[in-house]
Design a protein around this nucleic acid. Structure first.
Length: 548
RNA sequence: GGCCUGUUCGUCCAGUGGUUAGGACGCGGCCCUUUCACGGCUGAAACACGGGUUCGAAUCCCGUACGGGUCACCA
């Protein structure tokens, strides 16, 4: 037998790899973390969550956050996913420091950062394992493995390729040569040294210490196509890429003993581990992980399309990482959330339930704290990706659009009516003449249904006397005065005292103006809306409505 | 089923032996008010269950129940 046949792409000794990927030149307590998505079609919100934790952990300690594409399964790979992942990370401010940054371009000295391009490295490590008797080829077919499992089920024995069930573990050289000569496909398996009663403990950063029975399974290291499984790739990459903290979903907890055994066999110091609980959702009486198939909100695309601002998603996720973020935010208004220090150790062990209402609330506050310019910029980017018509209109006159957004946005208590950019086209459509025109039928119907109906001549009178230079108090005084002449009580109190003496109250008058000017009953402060619309539009719309 | 793990208001979190169990979202009420969005005040709402240990347990120990994860040539 020659190991060349099993690992044809092996090209390095372990010592050469050590030299090529030396320990990083970083302070002792700097954390090196990574995000390792597999490009299977979409980016899960859980990936964003994990990335946020990882990136913050790295940056808070002066370390590095890198991206590694785990594309070892060609069957499941979906074209274009890497771009999607990059775009998702960038949109939410989580771009990696190292790894594939854009269009196949790598940054960093520990690459390549796609596992499919690291096969020589993996095979080199596997060859070392073969040479030291820690691995062996296995020619078992899928059918044979199935028979094995059935037998194990019948004997109520733990399933898997282990101990005496590992049929190729101790085959003779002659058997191996015969299989090879017959052209049978093979995989390379770990020769596990685990004994029945041995235990391994995982010093998990979040859960403190977890004890498992030691690994006994002869896991597949190299698949029949010569590409590694996750297990081998994880151990090799996190060692040679010098990861200090593996932050991953807790679905990996159970495979830790395998990984631990490999680190030990190689003689490598394992990194620290933090297994974080997934974001879940209620499903009937129980809860389950958010799933890409049935939950649209599981996919990061959903948030991008809806136009949730970057910091809204960040701060909501920060809330899940550490509930004290909320208190910190209250105590530090206006401070960038980058300043908030997360503590992995404190993360909740139970899975958090995704709460859209809470996200919306966080988002309202985040947008409330943004300036009109910031909103304009973010919404325009969103629009150009997801709502071209809107983007054209909205971007045509930046000063006008920003004036719209600035309504009631100054002062101590800014408006909080925007949750996501998606709502903008409908919310501010009436400011633009073409979309306002499209709303006219609705406006006329609402106008006709107005109770009390506005009296003859009032709209024209308002149009004639309107002075946009009036500040809010003066404007109110003017309009109250004018309304009184047409039978509108200046306030609700006065109206309630003598309802028979009035046609309605000031609120009714303002409501009528809203229907005419905005084609809707709810708008921000009317005085500001009219100022932003400008005298020409206001007068034109009022006079047109006088004929309805 | 084996192994691992989790369980404080509906939800997210505080709470690490002595608290009227706190905050936030959501929900209800009141106030403010040119509508809406805010803002203020206020209400309902939780320690899964059972045993211990202790003067005293949400907090420590044991068990039970109910969840979740994992047992692939997927990650």
């Amino acid at each position: 037998m020659s190991n060349e046949q099993f690992t044809p792409q092996a090209a390095f000794t372990l010592a050469e790899l050590e030299a090529r990927f030396p320990p990083r030149d970083l302070p002792a307590d700097a954390r090196v973390t990574r995000f390792g998505p597999s490009p299977t079609g979409s980016m899960h919100i859980g990936g964003l969550y994990t990335s946020l934790v990882s990136r913050r952990a790295a940056h808070q300690s002066g370390g590095v956050f890198y991206l590694r594409i785990e594309d070892t399964d060609k069957k499941r790979e979906v074209e274009g996913t890497v771009e999607l992942i990059l775009d998702s990370l960038a949109t939410y401010g989580l771009s990696p420091d190292e790894g594939e940054i854009a269009d196949g371009k790598d940054v960093g000295a520990y690459g390549p950062y796609r596992q499919s391009e690291r096969v020589p490295i993996y095979q080199s490590c596997v060859r070392w394992l073969l040479e030291h008797g820690h691995a062996y080829p296995c020619f078992a077919s899928a059918e044979e493995l199935q028979v094995l499992r059935d037998e194990q089920a019948k004997h109520k024995v733990p399933p898997g390729y282990w101990g005496s069930w590992a049929i190729w573990r101790d085959k003779t050289q002659a058997d191996v040569d015969a299989a090879l000569a017959a052209g049978k496909p093979f995989v390379i398996r770990l020769r596990s040294a685990g004994g029945r009663d041995e235990r391994v403990t995982l010093p998990d950063t979040i859960r403190e210490s977890i004890e498992f029975p030691a690994n006994q399974t002869d896991v597949v290291l190299l698949k029949a196509d010569g590409v590694p499984t996750y297990h081998l790739a994880h151990v090799v990459d996190d060692h040679f890429m010098r990861t200090t903290d593996v932050i991953r979903g807790n679905e990996w907890l159970a495979s830790y003993p395998m990984h631990a055994e490999m680190f030990k066999l190689f003689g490598w110091e394992p990194p620290r581990f933090a297994h974080i609980s997934p974001i879940e959702k209620n499903d009937g009486s129980s809860r389950r992980k958010l799933s890409k198939r049935s939950d649209p909100e599981a996919s990061v695309c959903w948030y991008m399309e809806a136009g949730y601002p970057r910091d809204a998603v960040t701060e909501y996720l920060l809330n899940l990482i550490d509930g004290r973020f909320e208190d910190w935010r209250l105590a530090n208004p206006g401070v960038s959330n980058e300043q908030f220090q997360i503590e992995i150790e404190r993360m909740n062990r139970a899975g958090a339930l995704f709460d859209l209402a809470k996200l919306d609330s966080v988002s309202r506050d985040v947008v409330g704290a943004m300036t009109a310019k910031e909103i304009f910029d973010a919404a325009l980017i969103w629009g150009s990706d997801h709502a071209a018509d809107f983007a054209t209109r909205f971007g045509a006159d930046p000063a006008y659009s920003q004036a719209i957004l600035d309504i009631e946005r100054h002062g101590e208590r800014p408006r909080k009516d925007i949750v996501r950019w998606e709502q903008l086209p409908a919310d501010i459509g009436y400011f633009f003449d073409d979309t306002y025109a499209a709303l006219l039928p609705e406006a006329q119907a609402a106008f006709a249904a107005l109770q009390p109906a506005p009296p003859e001549g009032m709209l024209a009178a308002i149009a004639a006397a309107y002075d946009p230079a009036l500040n809010r108090d003066a404007w109110l005084e003017w309009l109250r005065e004018l309304g009184l002449g047409y039978g509108y009580a200046p306030n609700v109190k006065a109206f309630k005292v003598a309802p028979d003496e009035f046609r309605g109250h000031f609120g009714d008058l303002a409501g009528a103006l809203r229907v005419v000017l905005a084609a809707r009953r709810n708008t921000p402060d009317l005085c500001e809306v009219m100022q932003v619309l400008g005298k020409d539009r206001v007068v034109a719309r009022l006079n047109a409505a006088a004929a309805w």
